[in-house]
Design a protein around this nucleic acid. Structure first.
Lengths: 148, 148
DNA sequence: GTCATACATTTGTATATACAATTATTGTAA
DNA sequence: TTACAATAATTGTATATACAAATGTATGAC
């Protein structure tokens, strides 16, 4: 992916600006591919991430603020996101008995089932996105990301 | 920025998955900072990009499909985006006389004026986002991005 | 106990975006 | 020249997201 070509410009772009634009272009291709992957499951990336977090809880419930903390992309409305998962029958929602302000979200069987299928699809997509990278290059990339 | 720390997990994540998640985390911090930068100008990142493209035309108008082609993030509705810029008085919109299906969008003085101000703010934000990178590291990063 | 404050979630509202359907215009083949 | 397909933009609709305000609950000071 070449930045100048994509932007159809012949002018030189300052390295900093170029890096940010380049980053965004890569972001678009990644997002598109992931969106395509999740589309057949009728689940957004955000919803997928929440399901993964819930699975990571290993049976323990998570309340909304915990979910929000751990989400890859923070968003202002975890309530409605969980509502969607609830409507699809992937999670359950119980008001916390010790503190009734909190609600406890737990992934249920149907959620685990679809998550397993999505895992396979996502693994393939990840491999496809990163097909041109060697192991060392991936490590180099992760190290550079640490500098942000 | 450490991925495991951010996700509050102690399990090892496969390098491919980790890279994608890491990328998204970086994307969030970049987006937040840019959104903060543009907020005082009451212009979205998309609108900013369109203004930049129009300036790049150097007086020549661009029609909607051209704009959409060159936008960093493609979106399905350039019409409404341009409507916003029109309402703010930053661009003008003329139906193309040789082909009345097309509309020609041109940036006007007020648009150039605010764009200049935004440029300064964005330069600062870019520098801040990339403050931990040396020139060589930025080049390395851009080269790795070419592999996507 | 009452009040003020902090906490956790929910709701309202405006805007953004994705996707499909529609309108208007142009080019072209029969 | 009519009919059909292609092009360019617009509109409709559903969903997503950001942000602020509101609701309900808990806690600590007095």
């Amino acid at each position: 992916m070449n930045v100048e070509e994509q932007l159809k410009t012949d002018k030189a772009i300052p390295l900093e600006t170029r890096t940010i634009i380049h980053f965004m272009l890569v972001n678009n291709t990644i997002n598109e591919q992931i969106a395509q992957t999740l589309k057949p499951f009728d689940v957004s990336l955000q919803q997928f991430n929440v399901l993964r977090i819930l699975r990571g809880q290993q049976g323990k419930p998570a309340n909304l603020s915990t979910l929000n903390e751990r989400m890859v992309t923070k968003m202002s409305n975890t309530t409605r996101l969980v509502d969607k998962l609830l409507a699809k029958g992937y999670v359950k929602r119980v008001v916390c008995s010790s503190n009734r302000r909190k609600v406890e979200i737990t992934i249920i069987e149907e959620g685990n089932k679809i998550l397993k299928k999505m895992d396979v699809a996502m693994k393939n997509t990840e491999a496809s996105i990163l097909k041109n990278f060697s192991r060392e290059e991936l490590e180099k990339l992760n190290n550079l990301f640490n500098k942000f």
